[in-house]
């Protein structure tokens, strides 16, 4: 079985890789591109730990074939901060202690970024439903939702 050559961009960088046709984008990101910030919690789209964006659309990278990345723009947690300057969402997660173990955090931050791009002023309920696919077992979500609403407010203020 011949490997397929894929040209794509990841966090703005032009990237090329070889993959088997059945390999998931998650496996390529983690094992071939060493972008281990994207986490695997379930491999079936039920936990959101592997959330990334493909052409600005939020998806689970465990449910995307790597070959489908051809010509697309991939966004991962590694591209959220501007060098060492944290994004507002990341900063608010820290200020609100919105993480305990931190395994769901990269996927959540990518998802929150997508949420606030689509809806800069979400209600608590809208935020909770948008993020229902990002499981967190540590926090009970309270501080995550507070961080999201605070980040949204801060970003609106800055805009």
């Amino acid at each position: 079985m011949a490997k397929i050559h894929v040209s794509t961009t990841v966090n703005g960088d032009a990237v090329e890789f070889l993959c088997n046709p059945g390999e998931t984008l998650l496996d390529i990101l983690r094992n071939d591109l060493q972008l281990t910030g994207t986490k695997e919690g379930c491999g079936s789209g039920d936990c959101g730990a592997c959330s990334i964006t493909v052409d600005d659309r939020l998806v689970c990278s465990c449910l995307v074939l790597a070959v489908e990345a051809e010509g697309k723009a991939i966004g991962t947690i590694e591209g959220v901060a501007d060098k060492d300057q944290l994004n507002v969402i990341q900063q608010k997660f820290l200020e609100h202690a919105a993480l305990q173990c931190g395994i769901c955090t990269p996927g959540l931050i990518v998802s929150v970024q997508a949420l606030l791009k689509e809806n800069p002023e979400p209600t608590e309920e809208e935020a909770r439903y948008y993020l229902a696919g990002n499981l967190c077992r540590c926090t009970g979500y309270d501080k995550i939702i507070r961080a999201v609403l605070d980040a949204a407010e801060t970003m609106r203020g800055a805009a």
């Binding site: 789209g45 493909v54 659309r57 998806v59 689970c60 997508a114 229902a132």
Partner: peptide
Amino acid sequence: IGSTQVQGR
């Protein structure tokens, strides 16, 4: 159908 992520696909 599914989460926001799943709806993206």
